[in-house]
């Protein structure tokens, strides 16, 4: 990696100030950024570690029953502490990467990176979560803006994510055989006012909502309700591990399995 300045503030305010510097870059758990730096594919002048900020960490239930997770909370913590509050989300967190990744990687880091094959974006979008930053609240529907692109401004920090807890939910991930990221991952969440379905891994535009499936499942929350729906392969990712057509097909399979598992 190239040389850089390093700061490890202990408050959000200090972190925001540090990120105001020229070519400064926030560092969450480093599970994407550190390998990128080691390959010399990024050259920030300054790294601002968020891992020393206590107020970014933790899982709690808010007054209205929503689950709030600090942006600096690791996947392992979510897997453990959200298990009885939002089991589908905890299960998703428990299957990200391997133990080393889960004990370093953070929800804020994952969302800010918005890898098109990451798991968390599917949960956030399907849950209709709100991303809270140091300066504003952003609805999930507005947050994800395509592969590796989000609504975050330079220097903006995800302080927490607020998840409305659905009546039933499930995440089904079909693994890309090499990376074990999602080749296709589908998160289905059933709320009193309808069902939301979010798909990761499949689209060239990153995570997306499968609205036809949402409508069908809102009317009839059974796997059969979506068995005749087809996803258009155009716009899907086609690569070594699966064609556009295969990914489009898997979206349907994983959706049906998620509905069946959500019960």
């Amino acid at each position: 990696m190239y040389s850089f300045e390093f700061e490890k503030p202990s408050t959000i305010a200090e972190a925001v100030a540090a990120l105001g510097a020229e070519e400064a870059q926030a560092l969450g758990g480093g599970q994407t950024l550190i390998p990128t730096l080691k390959q010399r594919l990024a050259a920030p002048a300054k790294l601002v570690s968020l891992s020393g900020i206590a107020e970014l960490k933790g899982v709690c239930v808010e007054d209205d029953g929503a689950l709030a997770i600090g942006g600096g909370t690791t996947h392992a913590t979510v897997a453990r502490e959200a298990a009885d509050k939002y089991p589908a989300l905890a299960d998703l967190a428990s299957h990200i990467g391997d133990p080393a990744v889960r004990n370093r990687g953070t929800i804020g880091g994952s969302l800010a990176n918005n890898d098109p094959s990451a798991c968390y974006p599917a949960a956030v979008l399907a849950s209709g979560a709100t991303i809270r930053t140091n300066s504003r609240d952003i609805a999930a529907d507005d947050f994800f803006q395509g592969m590796f692109t989000t609504a975050l401004a330079d220097g903006e920090i995800i302080t927490s994510v607020r998840f409305p807890v659905p009546q039933a939910a499930n995440y089904q991930k079909f693994l890309q055989p090499a990376s074990r990221f999602a080749l296709v991952g589908v998160f289905v969440a059933r709320f009193a006012d309808g069902v939301r379905v979010a798909v990761t891994g499949a689209s060239e535009d990153g995570v997306f909502r499968w609205t036809e499936a949402e409508q069908a499942l809102s009317a009839d929350f059974r796997p059969d309700a979506v068995k005749d729906l087809k996803v258009d392969p155009s716009g899907m990712i086609g690569d070594l591990h699966g064609s556009k057509e295969y990914r489009a097909h898997l979206v349907g399979v994983m959706t049906r399995r998620a509905v069946a598992a959500a019960g």
């Binding site: 055989p177 090499a178 990376s179 990221f181 070594l240 591990h241």
Partner: peptide, 24 residues
């Protein structure tokens, strides 16, 4: 038989150049 594949594209670029794409 099930996983590993070393693949070059038509320009000779190694597509399976890391464990992200080469399945052990």
């Amino acid at each position: 038989a099930l996983l590993e594949n070393c693949v070059y594209d038509e320009n000779g670029q190694l597509l399976s150049a890391s464990y992200m794409d080469y399945a052990m």
